[in-house]
Design a protein around this nucleic acid. Structure first.
Lengths: 296, 296
DNA sequence: ACGATTGTTCGGAATATCCGCACAAATTGC
DNA sequence: GCAATTTGTGCGGATATTCCGAACAATCGT
């Protein structure tokens, strides 16, 4: 089978009018270029170059091969560009995508200027997009270990209790898990990420909490809390602005700290050097392949 | 650098809708095909195939790569065809080309149907064509060891004395070298292949022979001998027809047999498997590479 | 005639290729 | 249902390829 590296050497020899110049242009040793040409000639079973006193010249076969060789290399280059041109499609769960990912993504694209597409939606939708290969990287609050993917914990974000500034707890510096009993908690209903986490953290007290559902987004929850409709548990990062502005009060949970493990998911045969691999390496601060059990 | 063998495996997997079928089609083991796809994905830094329950499917990148991969393989194939389509250009000295080569060439093209071109001319012209790369193989009576070529003795043909049927020697069965003294010999003048050979074989008697020049071709020599203008020394093979028909009498030389070494010449970096190499191997009954000191 | 340059061969270390085997998961057959 | 088959995959190692530095022959410039 024809070898593109050998073909490239042939073109370099023609263009550089010599083996030495070709070797210099390709960062190879001259003897390697000689090897390449010899193998190319053996492969095509025809002499391609006449080595003569002084310079070199293509044989008729070499002359005929020349445009095809150029086409070959150009096509290979175009293939690389076309494939590399595909944007990195990130799918993130809404609060991750809205509050946490932006800065990471901005600094990533600053160091690695590859086109990216960020899609934000609910956790199940993220999983769905990963499954349907509509996303190259997923960021979500849980992962169900379905096969064909690798999952790593990206960040461990604590949940904080948020109350409106007029709430009785507004002056407190922390909240005990047991304080949550009997209080109306907005969001965090059973089945959601936060809800599951909440019930798990409270243990035996889990069935005595009171949650209100129907509030889709974190933004809606925040508005409801500010309106004094109840308290809530959200990612600390999602309320930094409101806390700074005095619109909301965030209180850490003590006794049973609730940590949300935010996971980064990639399809398992993850080609090394691909945008997805580069982003994962950047986000995790380490190469994903380091912990993968596959050749990537 | 992109690898065409890997690319071919990719196409085979797509076309065969699976790794196993691809491996079968390419006479490879399935694990090799897996390797190829993995390396291709690493090379292009993008996933190309989704391995799913049952079958496989190309990713968007794979879909985009597909036509380029096909173009790549098609171009490589066309390159091979174009280069292979060049005819084998044989240049032969006139008597070799006229009397000896025809049968060899005919049986060669019967076993190896590659397009051939036979050019017949004088010995110096043959060397000239080799030097100017207008011939891929040369067949001639001597070789001056110019660099860049390999020479092998193709055949060792004895020269015979030919006389016309009415000549006093016509009833003899052989001729002594010393008999040639004082006899008018047509052709064989100093400087020609036969002339040099003749003088070398006769040794001390060399300066006592009488040659007539001005007869270019062997055919002209034969006509002159039949006309009783003198005798001559020619390749035995060049007069088999006339001897059989009784138009000429051929007599072997004794005492100092004159053997003409017919040489086959090819350019030195002789690509293995090329038409020239195949012809040389066929004509010599052995691979030229076996005695070459180069990688061919 | 001399050194500088060029193409080449040679031997070796690093690397890639390819396969047989074994395993896991999914599919098929009964 | 459950075993048998099929399919993709990971692993280890025999084999081949790749690539280089060093040394050499031939050529060119001056």
């Amino acid at each position: 089978m024809l070898n593109l590296a050998h073909t490239r050497s042939f073109l370099a020899v023609i263009d550089g009018r010599g083996f030495r110049a070709a070797a210099r242009a390709l960062n190879l040793s001259p003897s390697t270029v000689v090897d390449h040409i010899n193998q190319l000639e053996a492969e095509l079973a025809a002499p391609l170059l006449v080595r003569r006193r002084g310079g070199i010249a293509p044989t008729p076969q070499g002359e005929a091969f020349l445009p095809l060789a150029r086409a070959l290399l150009a096509t290979a280059e175009r293939a690389r560009e076309v494939v590399a041109g595909f944007p990195l499609r990130i799918a993130a769960a809404s609060n991750i995508g809205t509050y946490l990912l932006q800065s990471t993504l901005a600094s990533f694209t600053a160091t690695d200027p590859c086109p990216t597409e960020l899609w934000i939606g609910g956790n199940p939708k993220v999983a769905e997009r990963l499954d349907g290969r509509q996303a190259d990287v997923g960021l979500m609050e849980w992962w169900d270990d379905r096969p064909g993917f690798l999952a790593r914990i990206w960040r461990r974000e604590p949940l904080v209790v948020i109350v409106d500034p007029d709430h009785p707890w507004a002056r407190r510096t922390e909240v005990e898990a047991s304080d949550l009993i009997g209080v109306r908690i907005l969001g965090g209903e059973a089945g959601t990420g936060t809800g599951t986490l909440l019930r798990h953290a409270l243990g035996a007290l889990a069935d005595r909490i009171e949650t209100v559902n129907g509030l889709g987004s974190t933004e809606a929850v925040k508005r409801a809390v500010r309106a004094g409709l109840g308290i809530s548990l959200v990612l600390a990062s999602s309320v930094t602005d409101e806390v700074a502005a005095g619109d909301l009060v965030a209180l850490p949970l003590t006794g049973a700290a609730i940590i949300k493990d935010l996971r980064l998911i990639v399809p398992d045969p993850l080609p090394a050097g691909s945008p997805a691999a580069r982003f994962a390496a950047y986000a995790l601060g380490q190469d994903m392949a380091a912990v993968s059990n596959r050749l990537v």
